[in-house]
């Protein structure tokens, strides 16, 4: 299965997906005008992985500082995709700066509908 690494740009995050380890990390900021450019490749590898995980789990680490509303929409779609993969054990770590109310609130919003996915809010200082 393919790994994915996309370096951060001024307006898009670093993306690192390791298929063998079952880990995905999205780190930085995301405010491209067209969020599908950033999230399209992530959706593709996730779909492949979740479709043939064969007993392996998935750990997703979000280390996002800021994202715009179209990225928020894409993230919501990603969480729906993860929630629907009921046969894969999924853990999401939503990291945010302890004094950043906005990112904390986004984490709470995203986690609201999740039952199958384990969602951890991880404040860091």
């Amino acid at each position: 299965m393919d790994n994915l690494f996309i370096a951060a740009t001024e307006r898009s995050p670093e993306v690192a997906f390791d298929a063998a380890a079952g880990t995905l990390r999205i780190k930085g900021e995301s405010y491209p005008e067209d969020a599908s450019q950033v999230f399209g490749p992530i959706f593709n590898v996730l779909q492949d992985y979740l479709g043939q995980a064969d007993g392996n789990g998935l750990k997703v680490d979000f280390e996002l500082i800021y994202f715009n509303s179209s990225s928020a929409k894409a993230l919501m779609n990603m969480f729906q995709m993860l929630e629907n993969a009921t046969d894969v054990d999924i853990v999401v770590n939503w990291q945010f700066m302890a004094d950043d109310e906005t990112m904390k609130e986004f984490g709470e919003d995203f986690s609201e509908d999740l039952e199958h996915v384990t969602f951890n809010l991880v404040p860091v200082s």
Partner: peptide
């Protein structure tokens, strides 16, 4: 300026600017 205010101002700035662009 506190982090939350910076975040809010920046976010409104980005959304407003992207609305103009679009």
């Amino acid at each position: 300026t506190d982090v939350t205010t910076i975040k809010k101002v920046f976010s409104v700035f980005v959304e407003q600017s992207q609305n103009i662009i679009r």
